[in-house]
Simulated scan of single mutants.
Amino acid sequence: MQDVTRELVDLLDLAPVGNDHFSGDSQDLGFPSVFGGQVLGQALMAASRTVDDRLAHSLHAYFLRPGDAREPIDYEVNRVRDGGSFSTRRVMARQSGKEILTAIVSFQVEEEGLEHQFEMPAAPGYETLNTELDLRRKLEAYMPERSRELLLKERAIEIRPVNPGDPLKPSVERPHKQHWMRALGELPDDPTLHRCLLAYASDFGLLGTSINPHGVTFMDPRLQVASLDHAIWFHREFRMDQWLLYDMDSPSSSGGRGFSRGNIFDPAGRLVASTTQEALIRKHMKS
């Protein structure tokens, strides 16, 4: 396991601080607030710590306030129900006594059932693509000095975008994105950890799909963006230290909100997870 991946795994390894209470540190990725995927991954880990012999199959979360990367996050888990096949947990994440995220997580016993899935879409192989880090390095001169070092730091999740576009000269594009992703280095055989890492990684790129058709990028100072909610469903087993294709589209944006969804496939073409997200996308006009 590489050092940056171990750092992320440790970040998800929450410390118990009481009955069904856990504390997690935050990681500064150079964004204005705590990366939403971090809070998703930690919330899923907190809920999983209160369930035995069942794995999460879905998570539904709302982002209530931006988080502060300088402060730890408290996660409180409410054991809503333990049934014969399913368990439900409610998670509340707080900083300084204020709620920043609320989530419902559902767990299921392993069982067989009817199966079908969408076919994996066409995509160039990951070995033919540049990494997101390489692409960021080409933009170093245009990055804010205060966050440049963090934005150029290697991250635990390696991402290789398909058709990344030029953020300095944005054009109107289809509401569709793809990228390959994986965790750097070999991970332990812990399906809960792999689910938490995928929840973390699923927040990369999804929001941006909803601004593709509008000829703007995150570097536009008039653009105000923030995740409002996020859901993920786990369909089949997978490993985060193997390449996964994230295929994303955005069926609609309206009312200052953009809606995106994604399907995640393993190299064998198995659909392993799906996501949805709605985000605030406001474009302020210059005064």
Rank of each mutant, 00 (worst) to 15 (best):
L114C: 06
G97R: 10
E99V: 15
A122I: 00
P121L: 07
A123R: 02
G113C: 12
M92E: 12
E112D: 15
T102E: 13
S87E: 01
R94C: 05
G84A: 03
G84N: 02
M120G: 03
R90M: 03
I104T: 15
M92W: 03
G113N: 13
H116L: 13
V91D: 05
K98F: 06
I104M: 15
Q117E: 11
K98R: 15
R89Y: 01
F107Y: 11
Q95W: 07
G84T: 01
S85W: 00
I104S: 15
F118Q: 11
M92Y: 04
F107V: 10
F118Y: 11
S106H: 14
S87C: 02
A103I: 09
L114I: 13
R90Q: 06
I100Q: 05
K98G: 08
I100H: 04
A103Q: 08
A103D: 10
R89L: 02
S96W: 01
A123Q: 02
L101Y: 08
Q95T: 08
R89G: 01
Q117W: 06
R94I: 02
S85K: 02
R89K: 03
P124V: 00
A123L: 01
S96C: 04
E112P: 07
I100N: 04
M92L: 10
T102P: 06
E111I: 11
F107S: 12
F86D: 00
E119G: 12
E99M: 14
G113D: 13
R89H: 01
A122G: 04
G113I: 10
S106V: 11
S96P: 02
R94V: 06
A93Q: 06
V91P: 04
E110T: 14
H116S: 14
M92S: 12
R94Q: 09
G97P: 12
F118V: 09
F107Q: 10
E115Y: 13
V91Y: 05
E112C: 10
S85T: 06
M120Y: 02
A123G: 01
F118R: 10
E111P: 09
A93E: 05
V91S: 05
T88M: 03
S96Q: 10
E111W: 09
A93P: 09
S96E: 07
G97V: 12
I100V: 08
Q95G: 09
H116M: 13
F107T: 08
A103R: 08
L114Y: 10
F118S: 13
P124F: 00
S87H: 00
G113V: 11
Q117T: 07
P121M: 04
Q117F: 08
P121S: 04
F86A: 01
V91L: 05
P121R: 05
P121W: 04
P124S: 00
Q95F: 08
S96D: 07
F107N: 07
R90Y: 03
T88Q: 03
A103E: 09
L101V: 10
L101I: 11
L114G: 04
E119H: 11
G113A: 15
K98E: 14
F118L: 14
G113R: 14
R94E: 07
A123C: 06
Q95E: 09
I104V: 15
R94Y: 03
Q95D: 08
G97S: 12
V105F: 14
E99D: 14
R94W: 04
G113L: 13
E111K: 15
A122D: 08
V91E: 05
V109Q: 14
E115Q: 15
Q108W: 12
F86E: 00
Q95H: 08
Q95M: 08
E119Q: 10
Q108M: 15
K98N: 13
K98P: 07
F86L: 05
S87W: 01
F118K: 06
P124N: 00
